[in-house]
Design a protein around this nucleic acid. Structure first.
Lengths: 223, 223
DNA sequence: AAATTATGACTGACTAGTCAGTCATAGTCA
DNA sequence: TGACTATGACTGACTAGTCAGTCATAATTT
């Protein structure tokens, strides 16, 4: 259809990369890593697939061999990163339910906080969470998925556990049953602070999380 | 390709910018309102100035009579909306400092929370805050401005006041001196919740704020 | 009439997505 | 082993479309 005027004689942008670098699954991973970099740097709209390709040392067309379109790439990136953490979170929360002599809720809260500090704040996943906060309202499907899979589950698991803590006397008020959000609040502040203000005034996330938990549990003790 | 009848002969890369915005304060306001709608609906990148113009019942060119470019429009919008609230916030916080018999910090906290609920959550300004959270990392100038003018001031004002509360015995621990962020945390959660999850599960922001304050102040009483 | 304000067609720069063509490697046969 | 063919991963020039910003001209005000 198109009379191709001229074909470049193998215009390899040299640089020691001239040949097929990896195969199959490698490429996918390469592209996902590059996509994480670019998306978390510029957001969904402003990210150019040309740049993702460049960063992955791959031609733009290659991206379309592994992902349907820009949006699919974006969604798969988020899910791939969030999935594992949901698993870990469930493991931690379950840890407090199965046993007869249950782990105190307070201890659970600390474990969740540690998980958050290590697996989210301490990794690129903090950028993923930011991306979800940032782009969520513009991707209703994403917001809904995230609510169903993470928020709703996490909250109700925590709520159930908090109810028990109230009945067993560990908690004096039902505040945490009504507002499990309060456990998450300092985590959100941390993510936003890290991405916007940390260079002006660094924030000790672990200490912040600990402070909130201590307050929520009436400052009984402080290991 | 466009086949057009005839056109002017593309010339004069003049650059003369001799324009004054003297009278049309109406137009400016119209445009700002429309811009708020579009920006908070789609974010900075994805907002089309054509749509802003349409919504403001104005031609696109008119926007450029009142604003230098898209970014200026965006920044002025944010500042115009945030400015007044900073004023109110300072007034509230000052109210606790000038008097001899000072307002208890706890009371101040409640006033700030009310201010937030009424002036931010209850208005379009919640969208503005969201926009700042969303676009902040991509506009370093904005993040810095916001840190200097709002965050840093607010935190240190609150910190000073909290120190006093510790000395005077109102607060038993120095947690709030170290982490004034904890006052802001539920506010952030509220904004994000409202914009993403409120349709799935509405959140009572006022009660959430109150719960956190009660907890921070050792649940002494609950009006 | 002159100055000011408004308009919207137009341009230039930019980009998601496509597809004809390339080539490293695997498989087949003598 | 060497020659020849088949495969499909990979490439990047190209298409079709978008949109910020401009400017000649029109409308309105002074």
């Amino acid at each position: 259809m198109r009379t191709s005027a001229k074909r470049k004689p193998r215009g390899t942008t040299d640089g020691g990369q001239g040949k097929r670098a990896g195969q199959g699954a490698d490429r996918r991973a390469q592209i996902l890593v590059a996509a994480l970099d670019e998306f978390s740097l510029h957001g969904f709209e402003a990210t150019r697939l040309d740049d993702v390709a460049k960063r992955a040392h791959v031609a733009k067309g290659t991206i379309y061999l592994y992902f349907k379109d820009k949006e699919s790439l974006f969604q798969e990136l988020l899910r791939a990163q969030i999935g594992p953490v949901i698993g870990m979170l469930e493991a931690v929360l379950a840890g407090g339910t199965k046993e007869k002599k249950p782990v105190p809720l307070r201890e659970l809260a600390h474990r969740v906080a540690d998980l958050f500090v290590e697996q989210v704040i301490g990794t690129r996943r903090k950028d993923i969470v930011r991306l979800i906060l940032t782009e969520g309202p513009r991707f209703p499907k994403l917001a809904e998925f995230y609510y169903r899979e993470v928020i709703s589950r996490g909250l109700s698991a925590f709520r159930a556990r908090a109810k028990r803590a109230v009945n067993e006397g560990e908690l004096k008020s039902d505040t945490l049953v009504r507002f499990p959000h309060l456990i998450v609040a300092p985590a959100l502040v941390s993510i936003i602070w890290k991405s916007m203000f940390d260079k002006f005034e660094p924030l000790d996330v672990k200490a912040l999380m600990k402070a909130q938990i201590d307050i929520l549990f009436d400052k009984e003790e402080r290991p």
